[in-house]
């Protein structure tokens, strides 16, 4: 088990004039090998929640264990937690800072105290997982495209060989082919290494065809959960929470009364109906 959160609540600036309860009684379990999505509008608490996953934030009440470590325990080894759980923030490419992509990816393993040889092995491993070539590794992070920068930033986190990869809005600001590419690489990574992945997003159509299980955050609580199909079927409820379901879900429900959330499945269904008629 990677994450086990039991009734966690979190209040920003507790006791201060701007006190704000951002998480309320959230319980969530993420198991080894899961591929989950966490969606919610801005301010719903989703980023606050994922910052609990590597001990950046600690609950004001309730309990969370990360890879078996209780982050509230005063003796907890948070450094270890942070190498187990790799958090990729929004616009991670803004955090690239080294002279070459290779040096940037090497930063974390070097800091973990690995030898030069081990570090380079990690760099090559992480780069190949996100599809970065040798040629790109020698370039400055400023010379490569937006999609490549983002993959370089993700590789920098993967180089720690975390058990759990958390990505906050990994496709924000990318063009459609850049988005496809990132999601494809993440799916492939999950399939090949079995790494546990959580994607935080409000891009509904992207996530419908990527993750296996969805949590919907609203006003600091987990308001819905299930497979993408189960969640999107309740699109009226999603819209009330300021979210949107894929166009296809609405269309198929409206015309045929069925739950379908990808273009491929819709095509198959409609052609099936047409052939039977």
């Amino acid at each position: 088990m990677i994450i086990k959160a039991e009734n966690i609540s979190y209040t920003y600036s507790e006791g201060g004039p701007f006190e704000k309860e951002a998480l309320y009684n959230v319980s969530i379990t993420i198991n080894q090998g899961d591929f989950v999505g966490i969606i919610g509008h801005t301010g719903s608490g989703k980023s606050t929640l994922v910052q609990h996953f590597n001990g950046l934030l600690k609950p004001t009440s309730g309990k969370i264990t990360v890879c078996g470590i209780d982050t509230l325990d005063k003796k907890a080894n948070l450094k270890k937690v942070r190498t187990k759980v790799g958090l990729v923030f929004q616009y991670p490419e803004h955090q690239l800072f080294e002279e070459t992509v290779r040096q940037d990816i090497a930063f974390a393993p070097k800091n973990m105290g690995l030898s030069e040889r081990e570090t380079q092995e990690r760099v090559m491993w992480a780069a190949s997982l996100v599809g970065l070539t040798d040629e790109i590794l020698e370039k400055s992070p400023f010379e490569i495209s937006g999609g490549q920068k983002r993959r370089a930033a993700i590789a920098g986190v993967l180089a720690m060989q975390p058990d759990f990869l958390v990505l906050d809005e990994p496709t924000a600001g990318l063009d459609p082919s850049g988005r496809e590419e990132i999601l494809f690489q993440i799916k492939k990574l999950h399939k090949e290494t079995g790494i546990t992945v959580a994607i935080v997003s409000h891009g509904m159509e992207d996530i419908a065809k990527t993750v296996e299980y969805l949590y919907v955050m609203n006003k600091g609580e987990i308001a819905m959960q299930g497979t993408p199909l189960e969640v999107y079927a309740q699109y009226e409820l999603l819209e009330k929470m300021g979210l949107d379901a894929p166009q296809i879900t609405k269309l198929m429900k409206h015309v045929y009364g069925v739950n379908i959330c990808t273009v491929e499945d819709a095509k198959e269904y409609i052609l099936g109906v047409a052939h039977r008629a």
Binding site: D175, S177, L251, V263, A266, K267, I270
Partner: peptide, 20 residues
Amino acid sequence: LGLDVPQVTELMYELRKAGL
């Protein structure tokens, strides 16, 4: 061109291609 179309556009296009 590295772009995308709205989901409904893609679906209708695919259905037309399949002869609907």
